[in-house]
Write a protein that binds this DNA or RNA. Structure first.
Length: 195
DNA sequence: CGATAGATCGGCT
DNA sequence: GCCGATCTATCGC
């Protein structure tokens, strides 16, 4: 019988970097919210120089205010009037959109919330992920390294795929989508298999 | 399969 | 008014 030691939380400094670096480093870490969650397998980065970012040109509004606060907090916004999307705030009002998880804990609860038994689709997409974890606007501004959130470090280096972001109309050519290479839990396959 | 329409609403130019 | 950092069902081939 094996004893599984809990992975340590990432440090606060983990988030105090540009979103491009954090987005890549997040692949393979484990996100949990009220005991439900999984390995992060897909992310996207956004910053103030990016026309696709809510914080483009460091323009501050009531909606994006959390992005201008300290790193290591959740920025949650509503998409298309009905889905929620979860971001991790990083340095200088940059942020990482969490796009997909490989479910590891609380799978029964996720199935119930999502209304499907397809584990590969439970958290494949930012809206699905929030529905499975029951993350809503109520979590906007919440600290990521304090209950009910946790982000656990990964053990070793993993093969990362890089591509263009999904579902945006501006700056669509930037290579700011990161994924665990070959994972079946991605919202979409990557074209190539770059590192 | 791939393409597309509809749901649904807050934030902004 | 307009337009999304989306998802699902339902077309057509």
């Amino acid at each position: 019988m094996d004893i599984v030691l809990p992975a340590p939380l990432v440090t606060p400094a983990f988030f105090d970097r540009h979103a491009d670096r954090v987005a890549r480093a997040l692949i393979g870490t484990v996100l949990s919210f009220r005991g439900v969650g999984g390995r992060i397998v897909e992310t996207e980065s956004y910053d103030t120089a990016d026309p696709a970012s809510h914080a483009y040109r460091a323009r501050r509004t009531p909606r994006n205010a959390v992005m201008f606060g300290p790193p290591g907090h959740a920025y949650v916004y509503r998409s298309y009037g009905l889905h929620w999307c979860l971001n991790f705030v990083c340095r200088d009002a940059s942020a990482v959109l969490i796009r997909a998880l490989e479910p590891t804990s609380g799978i029964a609860r996720m199935r119930k919330r999502r209304g499907t038994d397809d584990v590969e689709a439970l958290c494949a997409g930012p809206g699905r992920l929030c529905q499975a974890l029951d993350i809503t606007g109520a979590q906007n501004g919440a600290a990521l390294l304090a209950p009910p959130f946790a982000v656990h470090a990964r053990g070793r280096t993993l093969p990362i795929s890089v591509g263009v972001r999904i579902g945006i109309s501006k700056a669509k050519d930037l290579p700011r989508r990161f994924g665990l290479a070959g994972s079946p839990f991605l919202s979409r396959r990557f074209a190539g298999n770059d590192t």
